[in-house]
């Protein structure tokens, strides 16, 4: 290697430089191209994919109804789970220790149990508690229902997914709150805001920058998680295609139909997430996330 010195080259201008050869990048590019070609070949030349069948069922009424159920479940569990998650996160940071312990225990338990196990558990709640009632603890009851009437596949799915989701959201929101410096809360309180106002108006909006990206991922895993509800006979997207292929045995094309719709919704969610991130990232400089060469 030769060092370029001032004396040797008086009129150097780096704008005239040419890129260095990067053989590893070329190799990587070639490998990617081959893999892409193989995948394209497989997708177009394998008859077992039965693309005409895929096309036939893509907009099938039952499939679309299942899709709507999956999306509805996702949105409902996400909204309820986020609201509960915010409460749990503030509870975990509360000054009153028993509240802190209770919230931490809740998060530990519901984050630790696989969602599939939870769904089955809630669906079979009637075995443990034959009747559900409202009343004074250890005192008189005002109203009471048979658990089997209350716990339908829908309520079991909603409860299971919401509780599972809230535990994850609690951790995400807690991290977001901690990312906002305590000085911001102090400044808000110093101006005469109450603790609640300081939290809602000052801390939470600034925590959103940290909260949104993982929440987007949660939304996506929750959507995929709704496929679990097919085990408790809830007619979600997966259950809808299963009902079809249980009769026609066209398993692969129908699973492709399900994949297609899951991917469509996830892609839409990702776009939404990007827009939200930009909105809450205002006033912040951001890196592109690309690694320097």
């Amino acid at each position: 290697m030769t060092a370029t010195t001032t004396a040797a080259a008086p009129d150097v201008d780096v704008a005239t430089a040419r890129p260095r050869p990067r053989p590893l990048r070329w190799l990587g590019g070639a490998v990617l191209a081959v893999v892409a070609a193989q995948i394209a070949w497989f997708l177009t030349h394998n008859d077992r994919l039965e693309w005409p069948v895929v096309a036939e069922y893509l907009f099938d009424a039952n499939v679309l109804a299942g899709l709507a159920t999956s999306i509805g479940l996702t949105v409902a569990a996400m909204v309820a789970g986020s609201a509960l998650g915010v409460l749990l996160a503030t509870g975990q940071l509360a000054a009153f220790a028993p509240v802190r312990w209770a919230c931490t225990l809740y998060v530990g338990v519901f984050r630790g149990i696989p969602p599939l196990v939870q769904l089955l558990f809630w669906f079979n709640l009637a075995y443990l508690l034959p009747r559900l009632s409202i009343g004074i603890p250890f005192g008189p009851t005002f109203e009471s229902w048979s658990t089997n009437d209350v716990v339908t596949p829908l309520t079991a799915a909603l409860v299971g997914l919401t509780l599972h989701e809230s535990a994850y959201m609690a951790e995400i929101v807690r991290a977001g709150i901690l990312s906002v410096a305590a000085g911001q809360r102090d400044a808000a309180m110093a101006m005469g805001f109450t603790g609640g106002q300081a939290f809602v108006r000052v801390v939470l909006p600034q925590a959103m920058r940290v909260i949104i990206p993982p929440t987007g991922s949660q939304f996506i895993s929750l959507l995929k998680g709704t496929s679990l509800v097919s085990v408790i006979a809830m007619t979600d997207l997966l259950h809808a295609v299963q009902s079809v292929y249980n009769q026609t045995y066209q398993i692969v094309p129908l699973l492709i139909v399900a994949c297609f719709w899951y991917l469509v919704v996830v892609t839409a969610l990702s776009f939404g997430q990007q827009r939200l991130e930009r909105r809450f990232g205002r006033g912040q400089r951001s890196a592109t996330g690309r690694w320097p060469a």
Partner: peptide, 10 residues
């Protein structure tokens, strides 16, 4: 008035 200003960035 705080040493680190503590204006609300949002």
């Amino acid at each position: 008035v705080f040493q680190q200003f503590q204006l609300f960035g949002h």
